[in-house]
Design a protein around this nucleic acid. Structure first.
Length: 920
RNA sequence: GGGCGGAUAGCUCAGUUGGUUAGAGCGCCUCUCUUACACAGAGGAGGUCGCAGGUUCGAGUCCUGUUCCGCCCACCA
């Protein structure tokens, strides 16, 4: 047999690069990759995914690898089904993250953004984006992402910026955007407001400080108050006690004195106060605490801001003005101690709010910001999921989604940054009115004055991200893309940005386009290390997907991420798993080498009728229905298993369980096709003739189908193998081509069509399972008896009714079980039990192995008795089962199945008993 | 405080209309360099599916309670 055209080893590195470039060049990533179809075919419903845009200056991590793999899988599956599949790529300007990076690089030059000025800073940031913006998309390509790069977008590009303005102005005009002073989360390091979502809480050790709020005009009477942040005393405007707290009844309505500052503030009552906590009295700092702010509104208390934008004490802090908030805390407390106002300090665990980006402690502050009045939008978004127009997978996240939207607060959208979409509002210096405009105005829309200035702030990055599914398709223009591809189909992303992004896209989609932006939300889990710890640089447990791809191949990484992870559940990634999947790619490669080599073997040897110029193989592919006429049992079996696999895969893909589908294909390919079928195929090929011919056909057919099924998981190795297979078949045996011919490339090849189950499938599987069981039993015994692997042994198989099947597969059994083919007797019945044989019973089949020297009567007997015991206990179990209510209540086919099992066990038990009787 | 997830073989995890002998990979033990593949092949050990109840002819799978681990939301100073 000539050597395969495939190189002995699969070189994934060069292959991946070459194949990706080839796909892209040929336009396969475009939704209209079929030249016979119009670009916007109204008769076909497209499948569309908008990529979760990575940060433009980001670098690939496993989170990216996860979503790219999953989305690419979905897109490839749909594409192979003949659906116009569009995956829109792009990146996000990521306001804070990018600005921080640029500022960091400026700091290395000893510069600040203030020194540069806004214009120059933005110029530099764009330059930075040009320089590093391509890195992430290059890395996404390496993962095999079949995005339509011709439609790539960036949140700050012209079209998307127009969309942002349109959205802002529409909301403004509808009264859904307002500006005003509110208590917001302030990041003193970044010097910007951040939204509630951008604050994370950490439990940290701290101190609870107890002190005296002295009653005005008294040097004895005081209310004991506890606080974790003494510096905020400087901003207190009241002390609150519970209305029913007898201890402080007489203080209510009177004034107490703010320590050091000497201001008098009222003692009020509020249900909010917990009598059990601290001294049962609460100091009220409306300017720097959300709860206190709420109380101040109820009681019309004044609000004092006592910190500046860098969180230093301002003029309201008297002697502490200019001090950092933590310095002031220490100093004030010491001064209070000196003044005799300190009661005690005790250790206390604090819940510290920190900014997601900078990590410094967030300061609640009163600040004038822009907000989206979110309730009406949230209502619509809630309904879309409630009434099923949008389905969230896994479903349990619907509850999380509902809970968040039902309790949502107005969204603070302004950021005191420079990198982002500038708020399209101008303030008139003359009449003090403001104008929100789609186009930059040159004069005030109210008084006509040209003396107008634009709001200096930019919008939250998530504002533009919320428009992503439609802004990337051209909205607000009614472009052909927008008309044809919107609404999109699936939003696939991590559950960690359900609120940040998914909910906002739904709200904005419904508000601006009047439609749901996608019908399905598929949430994947987070990738953790093998000990289920979060991957982080400080732990040093970060796995770099690029290194993994270098080492083990992209396909291996993709397969690992896609298979064995469940939607919504975190996945622990271990390199061991990736290695195992690298081995799988290798397995596929080698199996393909065998198939192609066998094809060449056929080409060399005159098999059958050569007159048509090819190898005389049937012009039409054999249908599996021809079993058992044209196909051997092994052929029929593998075809039956394949058909069943295709059905399962289809069901699983449709049910958004592609991981399980991948696992099943893996199992089938390795442990059925490679381990059993290929081994038998070797024999059948040697036999030649019609059997050889159908064997090659089966090999080609099954391999081809597996490559198609695997392609969405492992696109590179399958495309490469498939190309070789196609080439070899076309050249050597064109008659073996799939019905309908070979497509141009696997990426655009047809997905295997599921077919209804036929009766012959069950029969083939049952029959071949018997063969496998016989082989296994003999192998097992050989191993147990330490029969040298090379040693072929004679055997007698007594098959009863199954004799024809065993005879047909005699050669296979002989080879796989290492039997002496010339001394393999397959007979229907045996007159006399042979002496000096080891006997085995496999269901209806008796096996005698004349290993006289290894026969140990006692051991033999023990084994037979053990087997009999097992069979009998099964018989007992099944008899009880079938005698009970099961027989009437369970579905008849199931009952029948159990009856058959029982019959099988009875047969086995009979044989075993006969064996035992004879052996005595 | 509210909600959610996990608990299945030594390890990491699959197991979705409940179907009766629970799977994989890795690791472990025994053998084999047999011309597709040692990134392999053959055989093997290993699990009363966290615990306690319940529903059902039948429960890893559904319900209730409970323990431990993790996450999300809320933020009692």
């Amino acid at each position: 047999m000539p050597i395969s055209t495939l190189p002995k080893a699969y070189d994934f590195k060069s292959t991946e690069k070459r194949i990706y470039a080839w796909w892209e060049q040929n336009g396969y990533f475009k939704p209209s990759n079929d030249p016979n179809r119009p670009e916007f075919d109204p008769n076909r419903k497209p499948f569309v995914i908008s990529i979760p845009p990575p940060n433009v200056t980001g670098e690939l991590h496993l989170g990216h690898a996860m979503f790219v793999s999953m989305e690419d899988l979905m897109i490839r599956y749909q594409r192979m089904k003949g659906v116009p599949a569009l995956w829109v790529p792009g990146s996000d300007h990521a306001g804070i993250a990018t600005q921080l990076q640029v500022e960091k690089s400026l700091a290395n030059e000893g510069l600040t953004r203030e020194q540069l000025g806004r214009e120059e800073f933005l110029r530099r940031t764009w330059a930075w984006k040009e320089k590093f913006g391509g890195i992430i998309t290059g890395q996404i390509r390496r993962l095999g992402a079949s995005c339509d790069w011709g439609r790539e977008r960036f949140t700050l590009d012209e079209g998307l910026s127009r969309a942002v303005r349109e959205a802002f102005v529409r909301l403004y005009e509808k009264g859904l955007i307002y500006r005003g002073p509110r208590l917001i989360n302030w990041s003193p390091g970044l010097k910007t407001a951040v939204s509630d979502l951008e604050v994370e809480y950490f439990e940290e050790p701290g101190t609870l400080y107890y002190f005296k709020y002295m009653l005005a005009g008294s040097d004895k009477a005081f209310i004991p108050v506890a606080t974790t942040r003494p510096e905020t005393i400087l901003g207190d405007t009241a002390v609150a006690v519970h209305p029913e707290d007898a201890r402080y009844k007489e203080f209510v309505g009177k004034k107490v004195i703010v320590p050091i500052l000497g201001r008098g503030i009222p003692v009020i009552t509020d249900e909010y106060v917990d009598r059990e906590f601290g001294g049962g009295a609460l100091k009220i700092t409306p300017g720097h605490d959300p709860n206190d702010y709420a109380i101040s509104l109820r009681h019309a208390l004044p609000v004092i801001s006592m910190l500046d934008e860098a969180a230093r004490v301002n003029a309201n802090g008297g002697p502490y003005a200019g001090q950092d908030r933590f310095t002031a805390r220490v100093n004030l407390w010491e001064d209070m101690r000196t003044a005799g106002l300190v009661i005690k300090e005790e250790p206390y665990t604090l819940n510290i709010p920190r900014t997601q980006r900078g990590g410094e402690i967030v300061e609640p502050m009163i600040s004038t910001q822009w907000f989206v009045r979110i309730a009406p939008l949230a209502q619509a978004a809630l309904e879309a999921v409630r009434d099923g127009r949008i389905r969230i997978i896994p479903e349990r996240f619907s509850k999380v989604y509902f809970n968040w939207l039902e309790n949502i607060e107005d969204w603070c959208i302004s950021r005191q940054l420079w990198w982002g979409h500038r708020i399209p509002v101008w303030y008139c210096q003359q009449c003090a009115e403001m104008t929100a405009a789609r186009e930059d105005p040159i004069s005030c829309s109210h008084c006509g004055s040209a003396d107008i200035v634009q709001d200096p702030d930019v919008l939250d990055t998530w504002f533009s991200a919320g428009l992503w599914p439609f802004s990337t398709l051209g909205w607000p223009e009614e472009t052909p893309d927008y008309r044809y591809f919107y609404p999109t189909s699936v939003m696939e992303t991590g559950y960690d940005i359900l609120f940040f992004w998914v909910a906002r896209m739904i709200m904005f989609g419904l508000e601006f386009t009047g439609e749901i932006p996608f019908h399905t939300v598929y949430l994947h889990g987070l990738i953790r290390d093998e000990n289920s710890r979060k991957m982080s640089k400080s732990y040093g447990n970060v796995i770099d997907p690029l290194l993994v791809m270098d080492e083990l191949g992209t396909d291996a990484l993709r397969f690992t991420l896609l298979v064995g992870s469940t939607p919504g559940n975190d996945t622990n990634l271990s390199i061991k798993k990736v290695e195992a999947n690298r081995n799988f790619a290798n397995k596929a490669w080698n199996a393909a080498r065998f198939v192609i080599a066998s094809l060449q073997g056929i080409g060399d040897q005159p098999i059958g009728d050569q007159r048509s110029g090819n190898s005389g193989l049937p012009a039409q592919p054999l249908t599996p229905n021809s079993y058992p006429l044209n196909l051997t049992l092994a052929d029929s079996w593998i075809q039956a298993r394949l058909r069943s696999l295709v059905r399962d895969a289809e069901r699983l893909f449709q049910g958004y369980q592609p991981g399980e589908a991948g696992r099943q294909v893996y199992e089938f390919f390795w442990s059925e096709f490679a381990d059993w079928y290929i081994e038998i195929a070797k024999l059948q090929l040697a036999e030649g003739g019609q059997v050889g011919t159908t064997t090659v056909h089966t090999l080609v057919h099954v391999l081809d189908a597996c490559l198609r099924l695997l392609h969405p998981f492992t696109p590179f190795v399958t495309e490469e193998i498939w190309g070789h297979l196609k080439g070899a078949v076309t050249e050597i045996a064109p008659g073996l081509s799939p019905a309908g011919g070979w497509e141009e490339a696997l990426i655009v090849a047809r997905w295997p069509e599921p077919t209804p189950a036929d009766a012959w499938e069950t029969r083939a599987v049952a029959d071949f399972t018997l063969v496998m069981d016989v082989v296994r039993a003999i192998r097992n015994l050989r191993a147990e008896k330490n029969v040298p692997p090379r040693r072929r042994i004679p055997a007698v198989l007594v098959g009863g009714e199954r004799t024809p099947i065993l005879r047909q597969q005699g050669a296979a059994i002989a080879t796989l079980a290492k039997l002496e083919i010339d001394h393999l007797a397959i007979i229907e019945a045996l007159q006399d039990k042979p002496e000096g044989h080891i006997a085995l019973v496999v269901g209806p089949v008796e096996i005698y192995l004349p290993l006289a020297e290894l026969v140990d009567t006692a051991e033999q007997r023990a084994r037979l008795e053990k087997d009999l015991g097992e069979a009998e206990s099964q018989i007992q179990r099944l008899e009880a089962l079938l005698a009970g209510p099961f027989a009437e209540k369970a579905p008849p086919p199931l009952v029948e199945k159990e009856r058959e099992k029982l019959a099988g066990y009875r047969e086995t038990a009979d044989k075993l008993r006969a064996q035992l009787a004879d052996k005595v």
